[in-house]
Design a protein around this nucleic acid. Structure first.
Lengths: 251, 251
DNA sequence: GACAATATGTGCGATATATGAACAAAAGTC
DNA sequence: GACTTTTGTTCATATATCGCACATATTGTC
């Protein structure tokens, strides 16, 4: 890369941070080099830089990220109006329906939670702002994919690893595209235990004042107490209500 | 900087990300240059790099961070065992006492939330993993400062902007140090509306198996329903119980 | 609409960084 | 414990980046 408007040292460093993940909390220099495709010498320099700045700890062998890294993501959550505007509406919604309510946006093939009001836990994993789920099998993901032009949605599905989380997970691209068309038509998506057995959810898009879809909100409920068939009857109106209220507030 | 093991381009880039914050969500090149102290040309290159990589959007004038930035903080939250281990205990605790429970660690002069189980909202601001509060006037902050050697705690207080959030906020360094001594002695800290009127909280330290304090947990309650004097009676034992259970699980 | 005041874009020499190979040091294997 | 393999560190040099100064564009003011 010869671009004069691109700081490759910076880009490499960000790659190094992203090398740390769920399954790889402690990484040695060589691990990072392998994960990022960087030269070992370069990976080492990036890691030492992180340590020097206090974003990572180094015990002479392994590097571990420190909580200071959270400043970076926090810069987004506190700097972006959307999470702040949506949060109180989610709180009220969650309290009214006695279920968890969340808001998310699309980042590549995943949905990213940007706000959440949780009632008692139903999911096995703990969702919070910054959490990610594959878009194709999450209710908000379906809504957000449906809001894209068909080819873009298709392209994203193509680059997604379509695996079955439960026996009910839809993984056939053609059937997913058909479902997206239905979602686009009807204005909401219901997921019946496709991500986790025992969990249903329903989502609607959040439009801004110009009618562009900027996010999605959903309600999740235990399948045992709220069968999928009832999700829309119970929760569609409350969700649509919030979406209507927010429409004029978002840009 | 002449260090051979330091990538200053990377360090500069991270500085640029941190320039975005609550009051400054949309920044022009010159703003970033001013905020970071970097040369305009450098700030511009870093920003264009962020945009190129999809971490920021650029409309030709202003830069805005995208949700992709959350991947960076998420790398910590998902890579670090502490949040995962603590979360289920907080969930159980919050349900038992019908109040919000949180866990945090120290980052400089601030506490950083790493996990949280929220019951109904009492605070005006919404706390979530990644959120920050000044250590000197938060219950978990007091506990974490008390766990440091005296000089370190004193040094941190010195570099803190000790402002009064409410008429009750302690801001005198000497009195704060005395309070830290008391906290160290008694093993818990109670905050009586020092951060926000109407909000009390109580925190205890979380030790690992070798007795080192690695985090703090707390319970927050509305002052109207639980006077500060009752906080310890009601919540100290549940908190201590969780700390005991976690001691062997943390390293 | 002309002027001043800021803000942004660009080319260049000086300087810092990446590269890959060579070396040193562990770690794993038999 | 000698051998192989992997990992970490160092170094010289080719290359990319920095910061400056200047050119251009945009914004605000009267």
């Amino acid at each position: 890369m010869q671009e004069t408007d691109f700081v490759s040292g910076f880009a490499r460093g960000l790659k190094v941070i992203e090398a740390f993940g769920e399954t790889t909390p402690r990484l040695a220099i060589a691990d990072v080099a392998k994960a990022t495709g960087l030269d070992r010498a370069t990976a080492r320099r990036c890691l030492l830089t992180l340590a020097e700045l206090g974003y990572a700890d180094y015990d002479g062998k392994f590097f571990v990220l420190t909580p200071k890294i959270l400043r970076l993501g926090h810069a987004y959550l506190s700097a972006t109006p959307l999470p702040h505007i949506v949060q109180p509406f989610l709180d009220k919604l969650a309290e009214e329906v006695h279920q968890s309510a969340s808001a998310s946006v699309l980042d590549g093939t995943e949905v990213v939670y940007i706000a959440r009001a949780s009632q008692k836990r139903v999911m096995s994993i703990n969702l919070m702002p910054g959490s990610r789920l594959p878009a194709y099998c999450a209710s908000m993901g379906r809504v957000l994919l449906a809001a894209l032009p068909e080819d873009e949605a298709r392209a994203l599905l193509k680059q997604t690893n379509l695996r079955s989380f439960t026996p009910r997970t839809l993984t056939d691209p053609a059937r997913l595209m058909a479902e997206l068309a239905r979602v686009r038509e009807e204005g909401f998506a219901v997921i019946d235990q496709e991500l986790e057995l025992g969990l249903c959810s329903i989502a609607v898009p959040l439009e801004n004042d110009r009618g562009r879809v900027v996010a999605a909100i959903n309600i999740g409920a235990p399948a045992a107490s709220v069968p999928a068939a009832e999700m829309a009857d119970r929760y569609l109106e409350p969700l649509k209500g919030v979406a209507r209220l927010l429409k004029s507030l978002l840009r």
